[in-house]
């Protein structure tokens, strides 16, 4: 009788947990929750190209309006939509949040990283201190990890620059010798760095503390056309935004293809030239659906 009870208990536990675990491994399921079309004053978004999120807030780079828009995140949607606009930030194209909820945005016109408080006050530009001489820095993208370390993709000098929260140079990793064009980078919880090559549809990886990048995947053109953004969640899934293909491609951190989600279109749940995506710890994802002038929220 006792043995039967034990078997029943094991089966019950298995039944309860196995589907949940399997779901986690697959990453975001991309069930559409809501779409954001405007700020809290009703001004429409126009060609948004960047999103950053944590469990509390979502910040959108409303690129064609030269502003950021800040929302607070609810379980199944968002609230608010405070406009953050300042002369120091033009055509923002990438946004990131640090552990304190402070905002960092890449100014697409002036190609500099602007630092704002959580409330949206301008704090200054990121000037990397102690950068090795001889190479100017042109940031194409950047990411901030959970320790507030800043990783800057510098296309001019062909490297990823790593600096601490104070902007002090820590190290640099040269880009590989042969590649098409790198548009974005991602950093996972273990500190491994990933680069997305838009031209060759390939992902490169440098291990945590590593000194060089190596191909993580082969050419992925059968799954994506022109990827422009790469991000990761805390469950070992890489999300690649395929701008020209209007979809999100999920890869494992070992580079294995997992799935392709969403498709090109205008209706909610479809994408038209998506350019960026973020995922938070609650398993919520936000996609900058640029040519649809909106942000879409999924889980």
């Amino acid at each position: 009788m006792l043995r039967m009870f034990a078997v029943f208990a094991v089966l019950l536990v298995g039944w309860l947990f196995i589907p949940a675990t399997a779901g986690c491994d697959q990453g975001i399921m991309f069930q559409h929750l809501t779409s954001l079309y405007a700020d809290d004053k009703g001004q429409a978004l126009l060609q948004p190209e960047g999103v950053a999120c944590d469990e509390k807030q979502l910040v959108v780079a409303d690129t064609a309006h030269n502003r950021l828009v800040q929302y607070s995140i609810q379980t199944d949607g968002v609230k608010g939509g405070k406009q953050l606009q300042m002369p120091q930030l033009v055509a923002p194209i990438r946004v990131q949040l640090n552990a304190k909820g402070e905002i960092f945005a890449l100014d697409g016109k002036n190609r500099r990283i602007v630092h704002l408080s959580q409330a949206g006050a301008f704090l200054g530009n990121i000037e990397v201190k102690g950068l090795p001489a001889g190479g100017a820095l042109v940031p194409r993208s950047f990411k901030i990890d959970r320790n507030d370390t800043l990783y800057i993709l510098d296309i001019f000098s062909g490297r990823v620059v790593v600096c601490n929260a104070q902007g002090e140079f820590q190290r640099q990793i040269p880009l590989p010798k042969e590649f098409g064009f790198f548009s974005d980078l991602a950093v996972d919880r273990g500190g491994d760095i990933y680069l997305i090559d838009s031209v060759n549809s390939m992902v490169y990886q440098a291990s945590s503390g590593g000194q060089s990048f190596a191909p993580l995947t082969k050419n992925l053109k059968e799954y994506m056309l022109f990827p422009t953004c790469i991000t990761t969640d805390n469950k070992g899934v890489l999300y690649v935004t395929d701008q020209n293909g209007g979809s999100i491609v999920l890869l494992g951190t070992d580079g294995a293809f997992r799935s392709r989600k969403l498709a090109m279109g205008w209706k909610e749940g479809l994408l038209h030239y998506p350019v960026a995506m973020c995922v938070n710890g609650n398993g919520q994802a936000f996609v900058a659906d640029r040519n649809n002038n909106r942000i879409q929220m999924f889980r």
């Binding site: 030269n66 697409g108 016109k109 190609r111 296309i155 001019f156 000098s157 064009f181 548009s183």
Partner: peptide
């Protein structure tokens, strides 16, 4: 460089 959107390869190495 005065335009808001750049063809990025213009500024690579």
């Amino acid at each position: 460089l005065l335009k808001n959107r750049l063809h990025w390869p213009l500024l690579d190495r």
